[in-house]
Design a binder for these strands. Structure first.
Length: 169
DNA sequence: ACTCCGATTGTT
DNA sequence: ACAATCGGAGTA
């Protein structure tokens, strides 16, 4: 019942992960595809979901052509509808969708969506709207050790949907 | 078989 | 500042 509730949100923070050449990517390996990162090597538009720290799910969108293993981590969003459902899933904690783990919890995303095609229910990804360039913040990726300085994180400046602690600049 | 630790979050 | 919590990846 709660799992079938329809909720909507607008993505306001992402991080790019490139193929095997990116040392911070889960696809950066000497032995090729594994059971965990297999979805990254698949066709674009599908979900790559993984469990971090044994407790939080993270949602990625596979972006590159098949075999390239590039993906985008969805790090934050602003609720558009169904805030009550999100709040229930989040056990009344805030923020609701700011941060990759919180976003998955609020949207009900888990390992069951591994490899899911994002052009159909139960999880749909659609084009949003233009964001003026001056409102787009760029920074290094959060929580990664390798290539931490690479400007591969993008977010909407001042949005409540971005990871807490992000500078307003 | 065994060890280490992470694309995080919440509490002290 | 620190604990929670566990499967994947690397080593043997």
């Amino acid at each position: 019942m709660l799992g079938g509730a329809r909720v909507e949100a607008v993505v306001v923070e992402t991080e790019a992960y490139r193929g095997p050449g990116d040392p911070a990517s889960h696809a950066a390996t000497r032995s090729g595809p594994t059971a965990r990162n297999a979805a990254m090597f698949g066709p674009p538009g599908h979900a790559y979901v993984y469990l971090i720290y044994g407790m939080h799910w993270c949602l990625n969108v596979v972006t590159g052509p098949e075999g390239e293993a590039s993906a985008v981590l969805v790090r934050g969003a602003e609720p558009l509808s169904g805030r009550d459902v999100m709040a229930e899933r989040r056990q009344r904690r805030r923020p609701l969708l700011a941060g990759p783990g919180r976003l998955c919890q609020g949207l009900g995303v888990d390992g069951g969506l591994y490899g899911h095609a994002l052009d159909r229910p139960p999880l749909l990804l659609a084009r949003g709207w233009e964001v003026h360039e001056e409102l787009v913040g760029v920074s290094g990726r959060i929580g990664v050790v390798a290539a931490a300085e690479e400007p591969l994180r993008f977010y909407v400046r001042g949005s409540p949907g971005v990871t807490p602690g992000t500078p307003r600049d």
